[in-house]
Simulated assay, not measured.
Amino acid sequence: MNQDRRDRLRDAAVAVLAESGGRGLTHRAVDAAADVPTGTAKNYFPTRDALLRAVAERCLEQYRALAASLAGAGPGPADPDGLAALLAGLLRDVAGPGRPRVLAYLELQTEGTRRPWLAALLDPIAAADFAAHAHLLRAAGLPAGAERARALTLALHGAIPHLLAGAPATLAAAGLDDLDRFARGLLAAVRPEGDR
């Protein structure tokens, strides 16, 4: 099979899933989004489960590429201000250019509640965030115990649906209307009292 066409179809499937949700992810919709002849997606991914697996694998590849690019930038920000800037930037990506990828991932998580094989495929993505955030806390000179890494990770994950929905009152109530301030406040919240 043609790998370029396969990747084009997988990228189109990510876009369709992000835009139309789980019910909108059909072979025909992927063909249209990829601008290929009808039936092409079905030739590459014969079943709906195969199509979901292709999207999940593409999301996992994109996640690993993002993680590798962050690792390639060095050990991470060397101070809390640098880490706050990085976290704010990641949240901006969620609300901006990374929005389709994150929406597709959330749709896959929902599908995973009914498909254990899909949940198992997605598990490494979210699980890796806990270790990555502990590493970033350490690199910035902050306490990086498991509880603090969990608190940071879960707070960031919890912010994502609100950023995607973009409801102004909710964003303001959550402090997500100013991502720099939100990130600084989040780091302050996970620091022990004596370190502030």
Results as ranks from 00 to 15, higher is better:
R101A: 00
C59N: 08
R99P: 01
P75R: 10
L70G: 09
L122R: 02
D123P: 01
A140I: 09
Y105G: 05
G166E: 13
L118G: 00
D49Q: 14
P97W: 12
D81M: 13
L121V: 02
D93W: 13
R114A: 15
A131V: 09
D123F: 08
D49Y: 10
Y105D: 04
A167G: 06
L66D: 07
E57I: 04
A159I: 07
A50V: 07
L91A: 11
G158D: 12
G72L: 10
L156E: 06
A146S: 15
I160E: 08
F45Q: 06
A169N: 13
G72C: 08
L156W: 03
A173G: 08
P97R: 13
G175I: 09
R114D: 14
R101D: 00
Y44W: 12
P100Q: 09
Y63G: 00
D93Q: 12
G141T: 11
L137D: 04
L83V: 07
A73K: 10
A159V: 09
L83D: 02
A84I: 02
R101W: 03
A68V: 05
R115Q: 12
A172H: 12
Y63V: 00
D129F: 13
A151I: 03
A131K: 03
L66Y: 15
A71R: 15
L171K: 10
F130G: 04
G76C: 08
A159L: 09
G112M: 06
L66E: 13
F130P: 02
L176Y: 03
L51R: 05
D177P: 01
F45T: 06
L86K: 08
F130C: 01
A73V: 08
T113K: 15
A149G: 08
A78H: 10
R48E: 11
G98I: 11
A151G: 03
E107I: 05
C59K: 06
G74I: 10
E147S: 13
L122G: 05
D93S: 15
H135G: 11
L137C: 05
A165W: 09
A144P: 01
A139V: 13
A54H: 02
E57T: 04
L87H: 05
A172W: 05
L163V: 04
A155L: 14
L70Q: 14
R53C: 00
L91F: 06
A67H: 06
A173T: 06
E111D: 11
G74Q: 11
L164D: 05
V94L: 07
R92V: 11
G72D: 09
I160H: 06
A104N: 04
A139K: 10
A131H: 03
A149I: 04
A169T: 15
H162C: 11
H157A: 15
L142M: 15
T47D: 07
W117G: 10
R150D: 10
E111P: 07
T113A: 14
P116L: 01
C59H: 10
H135V: 02
I125F: 03
Q109K: 06
G112T: 09
A131D: 12
E107A: 14
L83N: 00
G74A: 09
G76A: 10
A68I: 07
S69Q: 12
D49A: 13
S69H: 14
G141A: 12
A65T: 10
T47P: 02
V102H: 03
L108I: 00
G166L: 12
H157I: 14
L137R: 08
